[in-house]
Design a binder for these strands. Structure first.
Lengths: 123, 123
DNA sequence: AGCACATTGACACGGTTCGCATCAAGGCAT
DNA sequence: ATGCCTTGATGCGAACCGTGTCAATGTGCT
């Protein structure tokens, strides 16, 4: 549980404080769009002491996924929200299938989460 | 006030010819909406010889799911399309988890389909 | 401190999507 | 043939989304 980040001696270009303007420019989006996405709960950037939004790299990747779903696939924000919820559950149950522990408990857990996924789709 | 219901008293007829007006009234939708849904590939009713749409009970259930996703959740038709595709894959891989054959082949198949699901979500 | 610039939230304006209504042309059963 | 229904196409009003603009506040530099 030590530092999971790479050894940033000093030359790493990892800007830890990504403000909304640089994030928007880097993603090709409007800052207002990012604000609305947070307002809808699609992303959750941290806040500095002065209530300014700070985006992490994981959230940038999440925003890239959102942009793809909206621009390329033409999916609604409500649909993106539901799809991301499905993706979260999927990410959680993936190690249950790839894991080497083939106990009945994990299998039962897997079935349970799969049914939970079905509930998200109106089944 | 004429009885427009089929006269099959003694058994539940699985092969009813549900035309578009009956289906729309039973679902609380407009016939034009059902036509547009077929045009977008969301449902695929069979056709009679005169090119009239015939809906099965499975398609009625599918339309119920679509109506719920659109009306209650406010999801786009493109989002509904993607969610239904995810649901189809989910229905297919569910017996792989509940089945009692705990071979490595089925486990590998399960992981494969899970990754395929992830690709549908832009991961 | 002051000054310049970025960020905040709120509002409004085009463009698009959706369901619904309407229409003429043709199918089906009485 | 006479009604009723289905078909495809078109258009309209409402809602959604991205974007621009605005005043107020935060932030960094001199």
């Amino acid at each position: 549980m030590s530092d999971d980040r790479p050894r940033t001696d000093h030359a790493m270009p990892q800007e830890e404080f990504i403000l909304i303007s640089v994030a928007a420019r880097h993603l090709g989006m409007h800052p207002q769009t990012l604000r609305k996405y947070e307002r809808l709960g699609l992303v959750r950037p941290t806040r500095t002491l002065g209530s300014m939004r700070v985006y992490s790299h994981d959230e940038l990747q999440r925003l890239r996924v959102i942009k793809h779903l909206v621009d390329e696939a033409g999916i609604n924000l409500a649909g993106v929200q539901r799809l991301l919820a499905v993706a979260d559950v999927l990410q959680r149950i993936r190690p249950l299938a790839t894991g080497s522990d083939w106990s009945r408990a994990s299998a039962r857990r897997l079935t349970q989460e799969l049914d939970r996924l079905g509930a998200m789709l109106g089944l």
